[in-house]
Every structure is written in structure tokens, then in C-alpha cells.
Simulated scan of single mutants.
Amino acid sequence: MVNYNTFLHGYNLEVKADGKCSPMGSPPATLGQFPLRHPYRFYRFLCDLDDLVESVSDDLERIRIAAVLTRHFLTQATWITETCPVPDQDQRVAGKSLYGEPGYPFIIQVVAWLPQRSPVHNHANWSIVGYLGDEMAGCEHNSFWCRQDDGLKKGHAIIKKASQQILKPGDIIGFTPDAIHSIVSIPCEKGIDSKPTYTFNIFGETDFSQRYEFDPLNNTLKKF
């Protein structure tokens, strides 16, 4: 189901509050605290992420290091194939938790999407999304938005589309907590026998008081 050789190629991208999707910047020197081991077991990956959160407080630096670790992990984690859920036609999305422990500052999950669209939303956490699959797996068309107002008026938000990007298997994208995006999951270009869109997601600790769904037509927002 999932071809891990795609992670030997792919792009590392990042999105911040300005909504500009750009090539990910170079990781800070603290990346040297995390040797890229072979083999790179899941427990090592979890320990590295835990140490990363403990030692690096800047969210942008976190995602730049986490992206390097995630790509290194996914090039080796052949067992991920067996964890990919199968969405049904009614729900159109299925998720499976790979790691989540009370008191730990992140969760990891895999998600499978049939073609559909998401609302405009933020994550209110630092996060990494890796796109799994082979040439028959689906992709995601992401639109990235920038907030234009000062956030002082309750329930009111003016957002403007700033960039867009089609994300394919092998790509990894990092979001700062204030990044805003919307998603349309789409079949692969080959079409007929397209598989779902598969993602490997890492979400840092969420500030639910700042997690929103945005309505760009009516300039409103609500808790998400």
C-alpha cells in the first residue's frame, strides 16, 4: 500500500502565519543532538521528539528538526503499511492513533482520506504532516491563508488566501500554530484506480482556546 522510497525524494515545506508555503528552512544547530540512526526504531523516534519538545522552545525550529527526523523515520518504517486505515464511503475519512499518552506533548496518527474538502482552520499547535503512498495514492490540494484583522473582535476574522500547493506522496510539510489552511483531498493523476490520500501526522500540544474554523465569506470564526 505504501511505498517508502518516496521519502528519499519529496519536498520539505513550511507554512507560518503569513500563509506563504515555502521550502523549509535549514534546521538549527541543535539538530546535532539527534543522530540519524540506522535502524531508526519507532521508540527512538518518540524519544527524539520528546527530547526535541523539551530542549527546543521555538515552534519554527521544532518543525524544521522534526521534519528531518520524520523523513529519516519514514524511509525505514516499512511496518507503517499495516497501520493505514481504510475509510468507508459514508465517513470518507479514517484515522488510527500510533501514539498518544497522557502528559506527553504530542500525538502521532495516520489518516486516510477519500476525495473531500476540509473547512478553513488552524491547528493551534506545531505540526508535521507526511504524505504516504505510491504513485496511485491520492494527493492534497492545500490553500494557505493569512489573517488580516487584529483578532480583537470576538467571532470576527478577515482572512485572505496567500498561497497554495499540491502535496504528493514523499512530501512533508510543517505548520506553526498560527498557520491557517484548507484541504481538498484529490485522486492521483492516474485516476481510475486511485487510492485514498494517506498522511502521517504529528501534532504538538494543542491550545484549544486558539483553535478555530474560519469562514472567509462571512468574515467569522468559531472554535474547531
Rank of each mutant, 00 (worst) to 15 (best):
residue 140 E to L: 09
residue 71 R to W: 02
residue 149 D to H: 07
residue 90 D to H: 12
residue 177 P to S: 01
residue 24 M to R: 05
residue 183 I to R: 00
residue 34 F to L: 03
residue 110 V to K: 01
residue 187 P to M: 04
residue 173 I to T: 10
residue 190 K to D: 11
residue 81 T to D: 12
residue 173 I to S: 01
residue 223 K to E: 08
residue 120 V to L: 02
residue 55 S to A: 14
residue 54 E to I: 09
residue 206 T to N: 04
residue 215 D to W: 01
residue 125 N to S: 15
residue 126 W to P: 05
residue 179 A to Q: 01
residue 87 P to F: 05
residue 163 S to F: 07
residue 76 Q to T: 10
residue 151 G to K: 05
residue 136 M to T: 14
residue 203 F to L: 15
residue 5 N to A: 14
residue 158 I to S: 02
residue 181 H to M: 01
residue 12 N to D: 13
residue 141 H to M: 08
residue 173 I to K: 04
residue 40 Y to V: 11
residue 63 I to N: 02
residue 213 E to H: 12
residue 212 Y to D: 01
residue 111 V to P: 06
residue 133 G to H: 01
residue 13 L to Q: 06
residue 167 L to G: 01
residue 223 K to S: 12
residue 124 A to H: 03
residue 158 I to Q: 06
residue 91 Q to Y: 09
residue 75 T to S: 06
residue 2 V to T: 13
residue 84 C to E: 04
residue 58 D to T: 12
residue 77 A to G: 09
residue 73 F to K: 03
residue 165 Q to N: 10
residue 73 F to I: 07
residue 170 G to E: 02
residue 106 F to D: 05
residue 109 Q to K: 15
residue 140 E to N: 13
residue 168 K to M: 09
residue 37 R to E: 12
residue 123 H to Q: 09
residue 167 L to M: 13
residue 162 A to R: 07
residue 159 I to Y: 03
residue 41 R to K: 14
residue 220 T to Q: 04
residue 170 G to F: 06
residue 149 D to P: 06
residue 48 D to I: 10
residue 55 S to F: 12
residue 64 R to Q: 12
residue 73 F to W: 09
residue 23 P to E: 07
residue 4 Y to N: 15
residue 144 F to L: 08
residue 32 G to T: 14
residue 216 P to K: 00
residue 53 V to D: 08
residue 201 N to H: 15
residue 157 A to N: 06
residue 9 H to K: 14
residue 196 P to M: 03
residue 43 Y to A: 13
residue 17 A to G: 14
residue 98 L to R: 09
